[in-house]
Nucleic acid binder design. Sequence first.
DNA 1: CAGTGGTCTAGACCACCCC
DNA 2: GGGTGGTCTAGACCACTGA
Lengths: 246, 246
Amino acid sequence: MNRAATTPSPTFSPLYRQIKDLMVRSLELGEWGPGDAIPSESELAARFSVSQGTVRKAIDEMAAENLLVRRQGKGTFVSTHNDPRSLFRFLRLQPNEGEIDQSISEPVECWRAKAGQDVSRVLGLAVGTPITILRRLLSFDGEPALVDEIYLPSDLFPDLSLDVLQHNDMSLYRLYENRYGVRMIRAEERIRAIAADKVNGELLKVPEGSPLLLVERVAFTYGNKPVEWRRGFYATNRYHYFNELS
Amino acid sequence: MNRAATTPSPTFSPLYRQIKDLMVRSLELGEWGPGDAIPSESELAARFSVSQGTVRKAIDEMAAENLLVRRQGKGTFVSTHNDPRSLFRFLRLQPNEGEIDQSISEPVECWRAKAGQDVSRVLGLAVGTPITILRRLLSFDGEPALVDEIYLPSDLFPDLSLDVLQHNDMSLYRLYENRYGVRMIRAEERIRAIAADKVNGELLKVPEGSPLLLVERVAFTYGNKPVEWRRGFYATNRYHYFNELS
DNA sequence: CAGTGGTCTAGACCACCCC
DNA sequence: GGGTGGTCTAGACCACTGA
């Protein structure tokens, strides 16, 4: 590590942040894959020629961003959507009473199209880029809870089809990660109330015109690159969207 | 600081967390009030007979929880709702396009009542405890955006009335803090979609039956004590609820 | 037992703010 | 210049895990 880089300057960046950037790059490039243990703190300190405390601070920030998971006595691991604990990290819908025993994702449709203005703006694609659109129904304990309409750039998810979805009984983000090597690390949601149309009303078993939550999500992978756009229609008679503010 | 307390034991708690607990207590007891600078890190280190690094770690956690705000070169301060930067910390509604120039809170009603089952359960009060209920309309740039229905235990907000509200042109949490010494530090929100009733429809200038967000909030002060229950009816034609997931 | 992350210390120096 | 928080180091020891 070049100490000169820490010289005061208009673009001062502390050492631990430079280390962090290098480590994030190792994640992006796949040097350390999801679920893997990364080298120990002392190994990393030696590799970057800094003290253990500096490496530690870099890892602290990455753990706070859910990029890494520390496990005392075992090591530090690249976080993964295969971990059951992260299953509900991006799904804030929960039952008004009790807990969810079982959630089932039922693919409904999957087709190819060309990106229109809206999708290309959100995902940073050129208008006309091939995209894959899929619709699926998510049920909790046998009751339909939400319908998702998902827009993906086809080049990143080449063979995605209804067949693939039906033969993979896992969360979508697990599928993205395991089959396509695309890891979602962050998302933004914009929520509105709308009236159910015919299609969603039937899927969710509510009358047309019933109030639904419309949850629009943009999900990002490493480098703040948006790779998924999603419109979720949430039935909130038995469930609600939970959020904690601090 | 009694080092023996750090001896390995079934209830091991690191030194910096014990320091943090002591400091949180100082906040609860009002030794350090909102907006005040707390003692410098070296002073605190001396007071608790620990190293500066240990105090630092305690402050780090408190800053992460928005209890304190660090300002390099100046000191560490008790966070306050008087700080304009924290104005939208608990209000996640934002315009679909552009920014909010001006927000106006217009009190509509304010009356006393006795806590029913729902309020007492949420706020941890006995049924029948005196509560104060108020309704207000929040407008952004002249357009009505949301109606709040707010339930408070009367003993903590003794003279709260329509008159007080009309003569205090500040955010409610500023009023709570400045006039009643109640600081909100955390909140939970549960969001559903509902149809507008007559009253809220008129206030928000939308037809009866239009879809609205119902945002139920429980807000907590120090010690995780719930002190406010709120039902917000958000019009989401021009605005949306924004949330970031990570 | 050895190896990992977690805590704590003491001291040096830097960046920022204000007098 | 003197105070504050911010960074970085080197070293000691503790807590947890698994072979």
